[in-house]
Design a protein around this nucleic acid. Structure first.
Lengths: 115, 115
DNA sequence: ATAAAATGAAACCAATCGGTTTCGCAAATT
DNA sequence: AATTTGCGAAACCGATTGGTTTCATTTTAT
């Protein structure tokens, strides 16, 4: 099944799994041991992660070794980064606004001093 | 309700709404007019987007103006970027590998020429 | 050969999701 | 004053989600 990376990382458990596998590859039971849920549930999460390419699984005898493919996160990164300029602009104008009211306050104080 | 930004951007329609509102603020009907779904459906999407802070809505008479707050995407950016170093490393080692087999190929050709 | 370990697959469940239609209400137009 | 516009809320629907338990299969260890 074709899977969406955005949908895959929507679940907090799956994000944790990625964080876990980014450190070192683990077999499915080892991953499941890190969570309070059942092995079957983790196995389903891993299936979703492999279906969108965030994880690859290699069969080794009776074990299946799961490895993170974090470069697939570039799709997310690309989407988010198209808005970075936009949000920087907004923060810049906020800073200008704050600087402006700060300036006015100083001016007011000056006036009081004068008056 | 407390909402998760990751879950909010999981839906493609909601990502489109963000893209739309990043250009200029629109009222709810104007947003809905950009999609084939009903106004009620879009309204629900906007509710989710406001609940996680990706959109703010300002009442103006009978209209409600929706504005994107893309700086909230920083949460996504921060999570993804923690893996960038990791995936750059992997790509680097892939490049080294490709360079290596390329070198071997050239060596082989040299051998053939010699033999 | 038998037992244990690692896993997939299937059946099931309640909750959530993304969608709809309908109704009602307040603000703006006529 | 009557009508139109913009919208929320509610009820409903089928599909999907995240979880479970149980069972079968394959590999490895005893």
């Amino acid at each position: 099944m074709r899977r969406d990376v955005f949908q895959a990382i929507a679940d907090p458990t799956r994000r944790e799994i990625i964080g876990l596998l980014a450190q070192n590859p683990l077999n499915i039971n080892a991953v499941a041991d890190c969570f309070p849920t059942s092995r079957a549930a983790i196995s389903k999460h891993l299936k979703i992660l492999t279906e969108c390419g965030l994880v690859v699984i290699e069969q080794q005898g009776r074990e299946r070794i799961c490895e993170a493919q974090p470069e697939k996160l570039r799709e997310i990164s690309d989407w988010v980064e198209q808005y970075r300029q936009f949000w920087n602009e907004k923060l810049d104008s906020l800073e200008r606004y704050l600087a402006e009211i700060q300036k006015n306050k100083v001016d007011k104080v000056g006036e009081v001093d004068k008056g």
